[in-house]
Amino acid sequence: MFAAKEKERPPKRSFAYIKNKIYRDRLYYLMFLPVAVMTILFYYLPMVGIRFAFYEYTPFKKEFVGLDNFKELFFGVMSKNFWRAFNNTLFLSIVNLILATIISVVLALLLNDLKSRKIRGGIQTILYLPHFMSWVVVSSIFLIILSPQGGFINNILGFFGTEPIYFMANKKWWVPVYLFICRWKDTGWGTIIYLAALTGLNPELYEAAEIDGAGKFKQALYVTLPGLMTTIITVFVLNLGKVLNIFESVFVLGNDQVKEVSDVISVMAYRIGMKGADYGMGTAIGLFKSVVGLVLVLITDEINKKIRGSSLL
């Protein structure tokens, strides 16, 4: 029946067809209008400011300097700090993203397996509470917990005869500790989207799998995971676009002693662009982050397209 209807229409790509189609879909465009207007107002208009990446822009000066800011960053006096920060950012945030995805998905599966809705809700509520603590508070608590002077963890280690470890100021320990604190804070929160997605899965698939004699593990592997894949990939790719943005967690958890591994681009941008009011350089760093984010997203989306045949963008 649909096919028949299609035949009556003018051929695709013809002007008449397009006009006709746009007219038929006018309500969709109308619905999109508020979205478009707000996007233009609050996101595209300020983007005019991206040009300041090519300016020397401070409270006292606004002068076009071409590529000077980028030359300075990539090859100039600050380049060594910049590239170190760049490497740290990529490492910390991609490892963090991968861990976040795996742990959140696994936890969502385990939570979903709890039969009592009340218990599940209770656990889930507790697990997502740390997300509502600001990073400043989180860092002050963990500094005490991880303290080498009678901190909780070191007391336990001391029980087994280990010398106290100053986790936060130890270059080897800082990265795992940082990743752990990030997971502590945001894992429960990260499961929500997967729990919501799980509700969209077809229960018949489970029943069929069960009849086929698939155990819990196989069900998870062959039914649940494929069903969650779209959500997992979407969340992953979107987060990849923001991969260079990690800021507050590192800002409050890092310190002078571990700067080699903890200094990241956003913290550098904050020091220069906000504290130093060098808005031109701040914007240049921001633009660099955006371009890297864009490249990462385009690459992963391309891979995604090849494998699954659909694009996110």
Binding site: N81, N255, M268
Partner: peptide
């Protein structure tokens, strides 16, 4: 331009 970055390097080496 460089003061804040340099101070951050100094603090790192002092530590």
């Amino acid at each position: 331009d460089y003061g804040s970055e340099l101070n951050s390097i100094k603090a790192q080496y002092i530590a």
